[in-house]
Lab assay of single mutants.
Amino acid sequence: MVQKSRNGGVYPGPSGEKKLKVGFVGLDPGAPDSTRDGALLIAGSEAPKRGSILSKPRAGGAGAGKPPKRNAFYRKLQNFLYNVLERPRGWAFIYHAYVFLLVFSCLVLSVFSTIKEYEKSSEGALYILEIVTIVVFGVEYFVRIWAAGCCCRYRGWRGRLKFARKPFCVIDIMVLIASIAVLAAGSQGNVFATSALRSLRFLQILRMIRMDRRGGTWKLLGSVVYAHSKELVTAWYIGFLCLILASFLVYLAEKGENDHFDTYADALWWGLITLTTIGYGDKYPQTWNGRLLAATFTLIGVSFFALPAGILGSGFALKVQEQHRQKHFEKRRNPAAGLIQSAWRFYATNLSRTDLHSTWQYYERTVTVPMYSSQTQTYGASRLIPPLNQLELLRNLKSKSGLAFRKDPPPEPSPSKGSPCRGPLCGCCPGRSSQKVSLKDRVFSSPRGVAAKGKGSPQAQTVRRSPSADQSLEDSPSKVPKSWSFGDRSRARQAFRIKGAASRQNSEEASL
């Protein structure tokens, strides 16, 4: 019999049943779409005989028809080659250093092939080196495509196609095609072959870009420019304004007297070369007005044109410092986490200390709560409330009815002989401070409620009492009544008793 458990639990079988086999339907690529829901599959020993999904071999995947050992070796080799080519560490840098020397040698020989004295001697060596480079780069490109299958997102032919569309893979295939075209054109020995050789060798310069396949330098440059984009835009904007204004004023001053400034384009060329401190010297002002304007705008514009270099330099320094700090933080993070875990385990398992309490023990206690009866409008029989619902239920009951529930009420002091009981919340009678006064009792026990209740009776009109401690106690149990005489010590004692009862009640409510 096959059962599914969608909550991750395992159904224990009877003692008479045989052992169960467990598997996940959602992990089987050969299962139909209706059953690939991630549910837990529990099947008996007879299920494989019936041809269940556990008995079927995997229909898809890279190692579907391969033995386990061969499949493990296949995956291990794939991961190894992918890490060597895409994430070089340790001795893997030897291969990348060899590729760099190969590319650099091709670049140097290409430069010498353009010089007439070394053209014949360098062409033969360059031809052999180009063949070696094409073979190495071609094999490396196909190995990269194959090894990318170790990543989940690059599996299958669609994943390989996605990997081949990456920018550096596109550069690799462009350089490979250009190198093959250069060799094919150079072997023909005609004029067209020579011109094609010179034009296609430009694409071989892109080999130097592939040295940084992970794009660390470009990411660093982009992060620095993005972090200081506002400062760079401000400096370039002001420098551009200085360039336009200086070129226009010098053009007006030199026009008609200097042949170097016949057009405004000549003035812009002079301004750009001057403000960037290049100074070719092919154009320069000759009149005193033009020289004065050139000197003034040079002092202003050079500072703004040189400002981005300082901004980028400081940004690079701060970014490198931040990377070093992050690297040290990552080195200290795992030991710190292990130290915290060890300290907590020692703290939680220390049996010699009796003052340690688990944080979840508070929620494991069961509280007896009286249940409210809507018919009699009273609190009758009580029941046990689950631990997770205790706090919310108690808050709702307290807010609606005004009752305070507590588990172990402390012993109440008995009323003394000299001070009789003053009210239901005086704190001297046991069992009276455990409940709050309802809204109805407060209204009818207050002086205003009594006056409103007995407004029509003649006794209420004739008998008038001065405010005393009895009425103030019933009005607000948490307030201290004001004494009408300064020498009345009994009223002071009563006030301290009320304060103590109120503080105890607040602490009990907070504990609930």
Rank of each mutant, 00 (worst) to 15 (best):
M1T: 03
M1K: 06
M1V: 02
G8S: 15
G9D: 15
S55C: 14
A62V: 13
N79K: 15
L81P: 03
L85R: 04
H96N: 11
H96P: 14
L101H: 04
F104S: 13
L107F: 14
S113F: 11
T114I: 09
T114A: 10
E119G: 13
S122L: 12
Y127C: 07
E130K: 03
R144Q: 15
R144G: 10
A147P: 04
Y154D: 03
G159R: 08
G159V: 04
G159E: 09
K162R: 13
C169F: 14
D172G: 04
V175L: 15
A178V: 14
V182M: 13
A185T: 15
A185G: 15
Q188K: 15
G189V: 10
N190H: 13
N190S: 15
A193V: 11
A193D: 05
T194I: 12
S195P: 14
S195C: 09
A196V: 12
L197P: 14
R198Q: 14
S199R: 09
L200P: 10
R201H: 14
L203P: 12
Q204H: 13
Q204R: 01
I205V: 11
L206R: 01
L206P: 06
R207W: 10
R207Q: 07
M208V: 12
I209T: 11
R210H: 10
R210C: 07
R210P: 07
M211V: 11
M211R: 04
D212A: 05
D212V: 01
D212G: 15
D212E: 13
R213Q: 10
R213W: 10
R214P: 09
R214W: 11
R214Q: 12
G215R: 06
G215E: 05
T217N: 02
T217I: 08
T217P: 12
K219N: 08
L221R: 01
G222D: 08
S223P: 00
V225F: 11
V225I: 15
V225D: 03
H228Q: 03
H228Y: 12
K230M: 07
K230Q: 14
E231D: 00
E231G: 00
E231Q: 02
T234P: 05
A235V: 06
Y237C: 05
I238L: 15
G239R: 05
C242G: 06
L243F: 10
L243V: 14
S247L: 05
S247W: 04
S247P: 03
F248S: 13
L249P: 02
V250L: 09
V250G: 01
V250A: 04
A253T: 09
A253S: 12
E254D: 03
K255R: 08
G256R: 05
N258Y: 00
N258S: 08
D259G: 09
D259N: 13
D259Y: 09
H260Y: 12
H260P: 02
F261C: 02
F261I: 13
T263A: 10
T263I: 04
Y264N: 00
A265V: 07
A265T: 05
A265P: 08
D266E: 06
D266G: 05
A267T: 05
L268F: 09
L268P: 02
W269L: 02
W269C: 00
G271V: 01
G271R: 01
I273N: 01
I273M: 00
T274M: 05
T276I: 05
T276N: 07
T277S: 11
I278T: 01
I278N: 00
I278F: 04
G279D: 02
G279C: 01
Y280H: 01
Y280C: 02
G281W: 08
G281R: 01
G281E: 00
D282V: 01
D282N: 00
K283E: 06
K283R: 13
Y284C: 09
Y284D: 06
P285S: 04
P285L: 03
P285H: 03
T287N: 00
G290S: 03
G290V: 00
G290D: 03
R291S: 00
L292P: 04
L293P: 04
A294V: 06
A294G: 14
T296P: 06
G301S: 08
G301D: 05
F304C: 03
F304S: 04
F305L: 07
A306T: 12
A306V: 08
A306P: 03
L307P: 03
A309V: 13
I311N: 02
L312S: 02
G313E: 06
S314P: 06
G315R: 02
A317T: 07
L318V: 07
K319R: 01
V320I: 13
E322G: 09
R325G: 07
H328N: 01
F329S: 08
K331T: 04
R332G: 06
R333Q: 11
R333W: 11
P335L: 05
P335A: 00
P335S: 07
A337G: 07
A337T: 09
A337V: 10
L339R: 02
L339Q: 00
I340M: 08
I340T: 02
Q341R: 06
Q341H: 06
S342L: 09
A343S: 10
W344R: 07
T349I: 11
N350I: 10
N350H: 12
N350K: 12
L351V: 12
L351F: 13
S352P: 14
R353H: 10
R353G: 07
D355V: 09
D355E: 11
L356V: 11
L356R: 10
S358F: 11
T359A: 08
T359K: 08
W360C: 04
Y362C: 12
T378I: 15
P386S: 15
L388F: 14
P411L: 12
G418V: 14
P420L: 15
P430S: 08
